[in-house]
Each structure stands twice: as C-alpha cells, then as structure tokens.
Design a protein around this nucleic acid. Sequence first.
DNA 1: CAATTATTTCAATATATGTTGAATAGTTGT
DNA 2: ACAACTATTCAACATATATTGAAATAATTG
Lengths: 119, 119
Amino acid sequence: MNINTATSIFESLSSGIRLDVFRLLVKKGLEGMVAGEIASTLNIPPTNLSFHLKALTHSHLLSVEQEGRFQRYRANIPLMQTLITYLTEECCDGHPEHCPDLQMKTKCGDMTFETQKSL
Amino acid sequence: MNINTATSIFESLSSGIRLDVFRLLVKKGLEGMVAGEIASTLNIPPTNLSFHLKALTHSHLLSVEQEGRFQRYRANIPLMQTLITYLTEECCDGHPEHCPDLQMKTKCGDMTFETQKSL
DNA sequence: CAATTATTTCAATATATGTTGAATAGTTGT
DNA sequence: ACAACTATTCAACATATATTGAAATAATTG
C-alpha cells in the first residue's frame, strides 16, 4: 500500500455517511446490498447516496455488480485488512514496545494492555 | 471509539501532507519534532504546516508540548492502536473467516478480547 | 413498445478545506 | 527594553466537497 492509496481510503471514510455505508455493507458480507436498500436503510436521498457510493467505489472500498436493474454493492474487506496492516506497520515498526498486539502475536501469551489504558 | 471520533481521525489522515507528518512523527517516537523541523524536513511553508498540525492535534492524533519558544509535536500511537482495533472489529466481527489475524489471536491462549469491545 | 423501476448524471448552490504572505504573540538572550 | 527567533493567527483567495431536484440512462415488465 502506498501513501496515495492510503489517503484515498481515508478520504473515503472521512464522511459519516460513507463510514455508515461501509459498516453496513461489512455486516452484510458477501450478500451486499443494492443501492435503494442502502438508501432506505440509512435514510439518505438516492442522489446523495449515489455520490458517496461513487467515492467509495472509486477508492475500491466497495465493489459494485449489476444485477438486473439493481446495482449491488459489497464491502472490500481484504482492502480494509491491507489498510489495517499498513497502519500497524506504520505505527509499530519503529516502536514495537508501543504495540501489544504485535508483541502478543510474536510471543503468544505475554499480553499487557497497558498502552490501552489511555484509550 | 465512536463513529464521530473515527471520521475525525480519517479526515485527519485524508491529506497527503498530514499523513506524511504523522508517519514522520511515528518514526521519531517519544522524541517527537518541533514545528520548524517538521516544516524543513517535509518542505512545507510554516503557515501551511501550522494549519495541518492544528487539524492533527484537534483529532488527537498528535500531542503538542511547549518547549521554550518551540512547539514539540508527538504522534499519539495509542490512539492509532485504538483505530486499528476499531477497524479490525468493524471488518471482522461479522466475518471472522476473512480475518486471519483475529483467528490467530483466538488461538493464542484463548484470549477473548472483551476489553477491546468497548473501544 | 410504452410504462415502470432503479440508479446515475447534471446543474445549481452551499459549505468546507487548502494555501499564501503579512501581521501577531510568545520566548530567549543581550 | 530591545532585537532575534519560533510559531500561530488572520485575511484573502483558490479549490474541493456535499447536497438537492430535475432530467437522463438503463433494465424490466406487461
């Protein structure tokens, strides 16, 4: 993942509406949802939703597939995993002492959640 | 972590300049950097950098401490960890089959991670 | 093939964000 | 107090994003 991809994804998730849409579609998994269904679930005018779906699709956080006269959207979970990996590396590579999850991964059983107290 | 905090962080990281600043400060760890040092390192006019530092500080991704006539900025790594946890849960709660990391975690000493659900 | 349905595009408008140089405020050393 | 230094705020301008209803596009139905 390069920095342009990352900023593009962050930009996509920086709107409340888009984050709502993405989280909704994550819950739906492979089933996904068609545009109108998303619009009625989240109470967003179709025109506006279309604007946000376009942004999410352009950053590849959503995939879209035509299904008759419907457009079915699905969350791109592998891309989100790539983003999580990128963030984990960015934050912990230089300073693994701050990253209990990574420590846990390598040691498997020596867990201290001290750094999370401030969360 | 609630959705407003998340969107605020995403908004902060949606600018190339701000992501560069954050990544730079992550590398510096506890040492951090003063504003002028960041500006010269990344070749950003001080006025513009100040604008972005303010955004990053406001979303709590950076902390700032006065040091004589300098302002020393540091990355808030615990907050980034919280974000990573949030994203992981958002993406994997419903579909653990897509999340090898979480599967691995559950195999490591039977940790249920209840403490993280509330983040 | 006209009517219906689903969604997007377009045009207009409103709001928000990004960038810059000049002015400002706080800090240090003389 | 003063001059030099660091960083921010301000004002102006430029650019980008968000929202809406009407019109257009595309697929389906009768």
